[in-house]
Simulated scan of single mutants.
Amino acid sequence: MIKWAIALGEFDIFYHPKPVENGQAIADFIAEFTYPVDISLTPEAVASSSPEAQKVEPTLPVWTIYVDGSSNQQGCGAGLVLTTPDKVAMEYALRFKFKASNNEVEYEALLAGLRLAKHLGVKQINIFNDSQLVVNQVTNNFDAKDNSMAAYLAQTQLLLKHFHY
């Protein structure tokens, strides 16, 4: 490191370490986008709700969200990119401090993205997810047989009511 500092110093290039991120900003983000889950609603009740939210409205600006999650022995996390109609991309990386399956993490990523979009006042959104299970459960092609997946699906469908997607 010193050798590089000396070599670059000849050209008036100096290394300045990046300041530490404020931990309070992360805590505020988590507190703001964590909502209680109402598990009293059954997935069937949510699924049978009006499909009006799914209709595309050509007059509304379209936002785009890409979500992905991953879980392994070292932990689990997710990433999402929310793109405005003006093609401005907002990128987020999430690290979860709990054990979860890949499918659960995929749902967590989707829920985080939907909460963010709702908070920003998005009305119409295109959603991209590479999880076959999540996509097919949300589009009612697969049933959520596991209680955990049913709870994630119910929460997702409640949030999707706020959007044309």
Rank of each mutant, 00 (worst) to 15 (best):
F96Q: 06
C76L: 02
S148R: 00
S49N: 11
E104W: 01
L111N: 01
V88I: 15
N72W: 00
H16G: 13
S40G: 11
Y92T: 15
V46H: 04
T156A: 12
F11Y: 15
S50C: 03
F29H: 12
H164V: 01
I65E: 02
A100M: 13
L114E: 05
N22M: 03
F128E: 06
R115F: 03
Q74G: 02
L110A: 14
L133P: 14
F98R: 02
I65T: 11
E91D: 14
Q155H: 08
L41M: 15
M1C: 12
S148L: 11
L114A: 04
L111V: 05
Y35H: 12
A109L: 06
V62H: 00
V134N: 04
L120Y: 12
V20R: 14
T83P: 03
T83A: 07
Q74W: 02
P61I: 00
A89K: 03
S148Q: 07
K118G: 06
D12F: 08
P85M: 04
L110C: 07
K3L: 14
V67N: 10
S49Q: 13
K99H: 12
I125Y: 03
L133E: 01
N141C: 00
N141F: 04
L120G: 00
E44W: 02
L94G: 05
G75A: 02
V37H: 08
D143P: 03
P17Y: 07
H162G: 13
S101L: 00
N72M: 11
H119D: 13
A27G: 00
N136T: 05
A112F: 07
A25I: 11
T64A: 06
S49H: 13
N102D: 09
Q137S: 02
R95G: 09
F29E: 12
I39E: 13
P58Q: 02
L94R: 07
G77W: 06
D130H: 02
Q155I: 01
L82W: 08
K87W: 10
I2L: 15
V56Y: 12
P19M: 07
G9A: 08
K123D: 01
L116V: 08
V81N: 11
Q155T: 14
T34Q: 09
N72R: 09
K99Q: 10
G23P: 12
D12P: 07
A93P: 08
T42C: 03
Q73V: 08
S70A: 09
T64D: 02
D28W: 04
E52I: 10
D143W: 06
V105I: 14
A100E: 07
P58I: 03
P61A: 04
D86W: 09
N126F: 03
Q24V: 09
E10C: 09
L153G: 04
N136I: 05
I39Y: 09
I127T: 11
A5I: 05
Q137H: 02
F33M: 09
H162R: 06
K123S: 00
